[in-house]
Design a protein around this nucleic acid. Structure first.
Lengths: 146, 146
DNA sequence: CGGCGTAACCGACGCTTTGCCGGATGCCCG
DNA sequence: CGGGCATCCGGCAAAGCGTCGGTTACGCCG
């Protein structure tokens, strides 16, 4: 299953909001039998389209500090920096972007010290021309899905 | 149930990564009986600590353009801009940050035109001093939740 | 000190949901 | 036309779940 049809999209749309909905209900909503729905969901899981199921926890602070690192590279793509970033578990997301910036790195660290360490490690990479740190003070808006 | 004890936090930690784990397994991991675990989970759901369950969809962004809008405000906090941002469903997340920037707005739009419209609307807000757009070309790293 | 009420736990029961199977249907292509 | 393949359905056994009564632990107060 590589191509997603309309029913697969329906399944994803529903499961992305109610991951624990019974298969019977899901099947009824998309207009298929339970077993067919079950097979589709299993296929979506196995092929990696559905990566997992997560409980949405309200205001679970965890005491972690979030920050954006806005990176400008000397030349793009800079070999090796992605591999280096991938080594740090604190790195949650890395996006290649157009414009003055090249990379937006989102991190979650337990302390400002750790953030500084991470920042210095990245800044000292040969390919990094400029690096701006923006610590998240507050999440003003956060929408899960849709 | 207002106060969360250690076992509640264990439950949340596990469910936030594997929301569809069977109760029996969950009970075994936290060291309680299945029924006691069931009651705790139900209580966490009813009290709103668990807001829901979501499927984690990989590369669902089919056709949607993601972008970061890096906003500098004339004075912070700028009254009204958060309300205005909240009105657009394309706005996925808004973070108040420290540093030269003030706001990082993450959006998902169906087209570049729509992105431009959104950008102009935000830029024309009285409180906005500067606005940089960074369109996401590629997600190099994306980790769900630890 | 002892009795009582509440809260949380356990094990068991019955219903619901799931995973899996055989068989039917539709479609492609030689 | 007729296999091969993918997808669908219905049904069955197994595993899941919510709920119940009974038990234990703990704090309160006479």
């Amino acid at each position: 299953m590589r191509e997603l049809d309309a029913k697969d999209r329906d399944i994803l749309g529903i499961l992305s909001k109610e991951a624990r909905i019974p298969l019977k209900t899901l099947a009824g909503r998309i207009g298929l039998s339970r077993s067919a729905t079950s097979e589709r969901v299993a296929s979506l899981e196995k092929s990696g389209v559905i990566r997992g199921y997560r409980a949405d926890i309200g205001q679970m602070d965890k005491g972690l500090i979030c920050a954006f690192l806005l990176v400008t590279l000397i030349r793009t793509p800079s070999i090796g920096i992605l591999d280096q970033l991938a080594r740090y578990p604190e790195v949650r997301r890395v996006s290649s972007v157009s414009g003055q910036l090249d990379l937006i790195v989102e991190v979650e660290v337990p302390s400002i010290d750790r953030l500084n360490t991470l920042r210095d490690l990245i800044a000292s990479h040969g390919g990094v021309e400029d690096l701006t740190t923006a610590i998240v003070l507050r999440r003003d808006i956060e929408r899960a899905v849709d």
